[in-house]
Each structure stands twice: as structure tokens, then as C-alpha cells.
Write a protein that binds this DNA or RNA. Structure first.
Lengths: 224, 224
DNA sequence: TGCATGGTTTGATGGTAATCAAAGCGTGAC
DNA sequence: GTCACGCTTTGATTACCATCAAACCATGCA
């Protein structure tokens, strides 16, 4: 007679291929317009519209109205985490890339995962952080060491501000292309911010792709 | 042209109410027979059979054949984590309890989450561990302190064996009834093991429910 | 005041899949 | 051997829902 979580209703929403493509497209953390999402979903605007309405009604996405555009984005880190959880156990699927171009090799190299870095580079970054003993532990025991805290200050990350947020500092995030963990959480997001501010990394317009400059690549190796 | 995780196929599987009920029933970490699961799903054996076949084919469940019984269980902690992720963002649903009895109030108090303790008691336990400085950090930075390691040895948890496994020691797990994190991971599982071995806790037959003795309740408060 | 653009609503169509009863098939018990 | 039990397969039925075109609404621009 009590209330239990109804996972079927959420899972059902994510279980439609079109909606899943839309959600995946939103996993870079940006807000996309309805038409962009209808393209990503490979479906007409009318169909997309009904899908988007349902995702928003269920609280999976948020809507930001701006002029005659409606921007959709993932509603919360919890939703993003749930999607990541599914990604880590999902089978791989051959997907013919709709938009030809550099393709997914570059995506494997470096991309954005909601709000932090993912891909080979991100996995390597965590590896280096661990080798230099700036973070300790694996997976859930992952934490900044004292040295790591000093390093943060050195490269311009405000740890006090980071700690003030209720968000986890070090969060292991399972990389679906590498099958290894990379660094998420508040620190992961902060590092990506710094990389962009320093022009070591830039995001490629309208995609999850991230390109690192030579200095950026060097930073990942030398961490300074 | 590359392969990407196909979250739709997994989500679709979890998106059917019957299958979702079956998976939820399996979240206590035990293996259940096909008939038990058909009851949980509220469906005829034939229907249940086809559902279970699909879950197994997708790698969400494992099958253990024993005599003329077939036992099903969640295939891996990753699958359990994905389900927990969905639970944390799923809407609540009024469910008329099929089997009358103590109901879900006791479930809120203490229950098993795959292989570790969940519910009010589990949240309180983590709170106490943190107050006593046996674990530090929040969420993803969660880790055993030096004092915490000593405490483990004292109550009979073999840390060496724990570290030998590839599994994370401290894993924060979002409690769907409390909306706060409790302790999962290898340590969470080990603590539940000890509680049961010491007869401080016992599982209630055929449910996720866990009952703590007075000594068990005291243990959670005093941690020794 | 128009017109174009972005987005939603409506209604009809089709395909998918959940369901059950009944029959089939092993395994274990007698 | 034969019976019972646990589970699966088959086949038919049904309900749902993703989809699109066309009409509609609303916003911004000229």
C-alpha cells in the first residue's frame, strides 16, 4: 500500500530509440533546440515534439524558453548519472554516422560527458593524476590527496568554492568507449573549465567533441 | 560508422512493468526461481518465461540451473547500479501490496540493496561512521580513514582480502527511500556480512527486508 | 499588417510486443 | 515405466504507441 519507485516508466521513456538518441545528444550538457533534436533523432518535428514533451513531463529534461526557440537540456546530474549507468551495461551498436566528417575516432579521443572530459584523454588524465599521487584510491575510493589539493590551487581551481557545493568532488565515471573510469564530479568539471579557459581545449561546435591543443596534450602528460 | 552504446535496448527491457517488477524483486541479490518471479511479476508462467529469457539474453540476469529449477539473479553489480540509478530518478507509484503484512514501513527501516544494507539504518550507519571519522569525504570522495581501517580489523573485516578484489571499497549508493547516500561497495557488503554473522541482523524470508536485533541497533550507534 | 520561422496539435495508420491457453519437453520421484 | 512438476514453445489476440502529414498557433521581423 506504499509508494515504490516506478523504474518502468523512466526506463520506458529511455527505451525508445529516438528518445534515446535525443538524450544521448544532450549528454554533452548543452541545451539543444527542438529542431536540432529532431535531426539527432532522425524524425520529423512533429514526432520529436511529442517525444520532447514526454521527456520534460517526466522530469528527465528541462525546458528553457527563449524567444521562439525552446531549448532542452538534461534536468539534473542524477538523470545524467542514470543514463551513464545504462551506457555502461548497454550493448554496442553499429551506427552509421548520419553526418559525415571526422567521425567518431575523434570522439573516442576526447569528448564532453555531461560537463566533464571523457575519452582516451580523460582516462589518461586520471592515470597521470594517480601516478603523480595527486589522487588516490580507485573507483569509489577516489579522492584528492594533500598534494592533489595543492595542485588544484596551483592550476587555478578554487577548492573552497568546490567544497561549498553539495556535489561530489571526485566522481569516477565509466567511460563507454574506453571501458575504464575517468574523472567526473565537481573536480572533473572544474578541470575541463580550466582547460577551456587556458585555451588548452576547445569544444567543436554542435558536437560533444573536444579538441586539445599541443599544449593541452602536454598538460595532460605533465599536469602543469 | 562506429559502435556506440545502445541504451535504448537495455532501457526498453527495463521499461516493461512486469520485467521491472521482476528485476526489482531480484535487487536483494538473491537468485529466484522462474515461478517465484512470475508471481512477483503478476503474470502467468508462460509470459514470465519469455521475459526471463530476454533478460538473460541481454545479460541483465544470470541463470543457474539446479535440478528442475532455474534460478535467476542479477548478472553483475554494474547492472544493479544501473537499476539503482533509475530508482533514484523514478517517480513514486502507489502499489497495492499483493502480500499483506508488515508492509513497506519495515522496508524503509532496513533492507538489502543487492548485497549491502539500505534504508534508514544504512543511512544512519554512514552518518555515524563519518561522525567518528572512520570514513571521510562525501559521495564520490568517500574513503576509509586510517582509524577506519583499524576499526574494520577490530570488527573482523579482512581488509587485505577486500583490497585484493577489484571492487571499490567505499561506494556511495543513493537510497531511494531516504534520498540520501548509504554505504555500498565491498565494504558495505562486508559490513552486512559481519552483521549477519554476529546475529545482529537477519534477513526476512523471501523479501529484501532486514531486521536488526537490539544489539544490532546499538552496534550501528556505537559502532562496536 | 503581413509573412516566415519554430514548434505543437490532431487524426489516421501501421508495426511491435505483451499476454494467455494449450501443448510440448525435461527432470526428478515413486 | 509412469506420473507430476517446473518451465518453455507455439499461436492467436489485443492494446499500445511511434510515426507522419496537415492544420494550427505563436513569435519575431519587415
Amino acid at each position: 500500500m506504499h509508494d515504490v519507485p516506478d523504474i518502468a516508466s523512466v526506463a520506458r521513456l529511455m527505451g525508445d530509440p529516438t528518445r534515446a538518441r535525443m538524450l544521448t545528444a544532450l549528454m554533452d550538457g548543452r541545451a539543444l533546440t527542438a529542431t536540432e533534436l529532431s535531426l539527432q533523432g532522425g524524425v520529423t518535428p512533429s514526432t520529436a515534439s511529442s517525444h520532447l514533451a514526454r521527456l520534460a513531463a517526466a522530469g528527465l529534461t528541462e525546458i528553457v524558453q527563449q524567444g521562439r526557440h525552446r531549448y532542452f537540456r538534461i534536468a539534473s546530474p542524477e538523470v545524467a548519472a542514470a543514463i551513464e549507468g545504462l551506457m555502461s551495461i548497454a550493448p554496442r551498436k553499429e551506427l552509421r554516422t548520419i553526418i559525415p566528417g571526422p567521425g567518431t575516432d575523434a570522439l573516442r579521443r576526447a569528448r564532453v560527458c555531461y560537463d566533464h572530459l571523457a575519452g582516451e584523454v580523460a582516462v589518461r588524465l586520471l592515470e597521470r593524476l594517480r601516478e603523480k599521487k595527486l589522487v588516490s584510491g580507485v573507483d569509489e575510493t577516489l579522492a584528492l590527496t594533500v598534494n592533489g589539493e595543492a595542485w588544484c590551487e596551483r592550476i587555478g581551481i578554487d577548492l573552497v568554492a568546490l567544497n561549498a557545493r553539495r556535489r561530489r568532488i571526485c566522481r569516477p565515471c565509466l567511460d563507454w568507449s574506453e571501458r575504464r573510469t575517468h574523472l567526473g564530479g565537481a573536480l572533473g568539471a572544474a578541470i575541463l573549465d580550466r582547460l577551456m579557459a587556458l585555451r588548452y581545449a576547445r569544444r567543436v561546435r554542435a558536437s560533444r567533441m573536444v579538441v586539445l591543443s599541443a599544449r593541452g596534450e602536454a598538460f595532460v602528460e605533465r599536469l602543469g
